[in-house]
Simulated scan of single mutants.
Amino acid sequence: MTNDPIVEFCPVARALNLVGDRWSLLIVRDAFDGICRFKDFQKSLGVARNILSDRLKKLVESEILETRAASDGTAYQEYVLTSKGTSLFTLIVAFRQWGETYLFSGNEPHSVLVEAQTQKPIPLMQVVNEQGNILLPSEAYVKKVI
């Protein structure tokens, strides 16, 4: 808990406080891509060792990642997503789709997230109501804590 009223009552602020920096989300992204070793995270991200070590520690302490013995029997440890970490998949997909939509020109190459079974691109995520109808921002509001 925090004494900051913005963080204390706002789920978005709490989430950003935990995984809102560039490196944490990119570590989670890489974990979804199967990266699990320190040296492989460092190679993929090009991040300084001290920063990577700090972010991995924070993600483990927050139970987004957990450590386990290396699957190949070596003395190394691996970082793997927990169920709490796996639930960040929708956030990673939403960021990816937003980036694909707004940060690349029409013919600029970029990676594409596809469904493993069909090999087809994942449809654009949408916020829907109980009936499955797409909700516009004007059709929802945040009920603030008083």
Rank of each mutant, 00 (worst) to 15 (best):
E100W: 11
P121R: 06
N107H: 13
V12G: 07
L26A: 14
K144S: 09
A140G: 07
I35A: 13
I6Q: 14
A48F: 04
R68E: 15
G106R: 11
I27M: 04
N50I: 03
W23A: 14
D21I: 08
K57G: 02
I64N: 05
R55I: 03
T2A: 13
E78V: 01
Q119D: 14
E8I: 10
S87L: 08
V28H: 02
S24Y: 06
V28D: 02
E130R: 15
V19R: 02
E115F: 12
P109E: 10
K84W: 04
E63C: 04
T2S: 15
N133M: 08
S83M: 07
R22S: 09
R29S: 13
I27G: 01
V127H: 08
N129I: 08
V127G: 03
H110T: 07
L136A: 13
N107G: 10
V28L: 07
C10F: 09
F9S: 15
Y102G: 01
L113V: 05
H110V: 06
F104S: 09
G46T: 00
R68Y: 09
L103S: 13
D4G: 11
M125N: 01
Y141C: 02
L91G: 00
L124S: 14
I6F: 12
A116S: 12
I92N: 01
Q77P: 00
Q42R: 15
I146Y: 06
Q97G: 04
L113M: 04
I64S: 00
T67E: 05
W23T: 15
I134D: 09
I92Y: 04
M125Y: 02
V47I: 13
E115T: 13
Q77F: 02
S62G: 15
L113H: 01
H110K: 13
F41N: 14
D21H: 09
G73P: 03
L135S: 08
S53P: 03
L81T: 02
G85K: 00
E139F: 03
P5H: 07
T82P: 02
F32R: 12
L103Q: 11
A69G: 09
D72V: 05
S62R: 04
E115S: 12
C10A: 12
F32Q: 07
S53Q: 04
A69S: 06
L88R: 05
P123V: 02
D30R: 15
L136P: 01
A13C: 15
D4F: 09
C10I: 09
I64P: 03
Q131F: 08
N17C: 08
E139I: 03
E63G: 03
R96K: 08
Q97F: 05
S44E: 15
T2Q: 13
I51Y: 12
Q126S: 10
L103C: 15
S111L: 11
L25T: 12
K144F: 12
E115G: 11
P5T: 10
V28Y: 01
R55M: 05
